[in-house]
Nucleic acid binder design. Structure first.
Lengths: 245, 245
DNA sequence: CGGTATTTTGAGCAGTGTCAAAGACGGTGG
DNA sequence: CCACCGTCTTTGACACTGCTCAAAATACCG
């Protein structure tokens, strides 16, 4: 099941989302020594505040970054897809301000801090690629802020589903119209700031109006233009434009 | 009024918030050649998507970074205080995904891209400081996401006011208890995702319960512990810990 | 196959939003 | 220096989105 995914290619693909990598860069990425580990659904890959030193790449599976209020509400602040770096801030700090939890059984690769940073230092375009990924993630945070702060419950859910479709397509993990989303409706709710009951009503309304179809956790976007419109979704925020202008 | 603020010292102070700068770093920062410009309240310093090339520092005044939905809602995604870099992503991209607007009359310093990057390249601790500021800003975005997604209207407003107090204190711009907040209640609402009417009710309730006092746009936090508790506020997220652990 | 977690649905309610108007403030021009 | 005007704050009444509680139906897992 996982075997069809090429970890090294995925990471290179992730890093070349916003700028070019050449063959030497890609090969160097392929030579990284990684220790891989599998986590069950729901298990914590990182705990907030604990220090670490390795870089962590997602090989397969989807993970959440999440924070909590003092009265127990859990807010999902982003999710990773295969190829993403879980802790890019590892270059600058040695702990995280969020927890990282698996949405499903996931496979994770650990790369030593020194080894990855040596790679970055010797390959300027890999360094740029990592920096651009970080910039892109900041943009995603701001878009989520706009989504949660400024849109209705239904629109938020549609935006979230559109984002998942777009990101997996960009990474070559789906065709952008058919995908299985390994998240409960409660987790979707915690991502967009509404209750699971309301997530359900939103999704059902999309199905009823013929925008998507949905069974178990498989989604098909039937009317992509209509669905994007409902979610006020534009994939512009997923793409950062690189120099030169 | 502005004359009591030392721009160069402020920028150094901003950059040394999360790591150490030595005298040589500070002096080098002081030698930066800057072109300064004054903007009126409400004017745009940057427009989303437009390309630029200079680094922009805030000398005095408060600015918003803001985005809009397609149906016109405006979400403020962060605000800057004097000493901040408005566009730190200038190192990697040449345009912004948000607009930058003055909350009040503000003074801005432009530093040439090449000059600032030369400085970064020759001063590793300045480079680290900039990277740490960027990391800190990502943390702030995630905290805002938690605030908007997971807390009640009153709690959000209290959290926002606490954050303003804490950040200005950290930068040496207030004592953390008395401050004038140059934002309308509508702008506060757009920051935390509620209507201005509701912001007003929240603030009034804080006044009535003796947590703060408030006239015009001057605030005094009377019961700091109580007010932090109401806002579920901890300033941990403002501080990133530097290596070594 | 049984037990558990998730999805789905309903009914009632609470927190926020909407609309509207009055009061306060601050800036401007005469 | 004052009167005016526009913007912001404050307040009230009411509507509605989204939440709570609860229970049934369905899917998942060992």
């Amino acid at each position: 099941m996982i075997s069809e995914i090429d970890p090294r290619g995925l990471i290179a693909k992730s890093l070349s989302e916003h700028s070019q990598l050449d063959v030497f860069d890609t090969e160097a990425l392929g030579r990284l020594k990684a220790r891989t580990k599998t986590f069950e659904s729901g298990s914590y890959v990182f705990r907030e505040g604990l220090s670490f030193s390795d870089y962590v790449f997602v090989i397969s599976g989807y993970l959440f970054r999440q924070k909590q209020t003092s009265d127990g509400y859990r807010q999902i602040v982003s999710f990773t897809i295969p190829g993403d770096i879980v802790n890019p801030e590892n270059r600058f700090v040695n702990n995280l301000d969020y927890n990282v939890v698996c949405a499903e059984k996931s496979s994770i690769a650990y790369v030593q801090k020194s080894e990855f940073e040596l790679l970055i230092d010797s390959h300027p375009s890999i360094r740029l690629a990592v920096d651009l990924r970080t910039t892109a993630e900041s943009r995603q945070l701001r878009e989520w802020l706009l989504n949660i702060g400024g849109r209705s419950a239904k629109t938020r859910v549609a935006h979230f589903l559109n984002e998942f479709a777009a990101r997996t397509k960009l990474r070559g993990l789906s065709d952008g119209l058919h995908f299985s989303l390994p998240m409960s409706q409660e987790q979707i709710g915690d991502s967009v700031g509404i209750t699971p009951v309301h997530v359900n009503r939103a999704i059902r309304s999309f199905v009823e109006s013929g925008l998507i179809s949905h069974t178990n956790r498989k989604y098909e976007i039937v009317d992509i233009n209509g669905f994007r419109q409902v979610g006020q979704f534009s994939e512009k925020f997923l793409l950062v434009s690189n120099f030169p202008q």
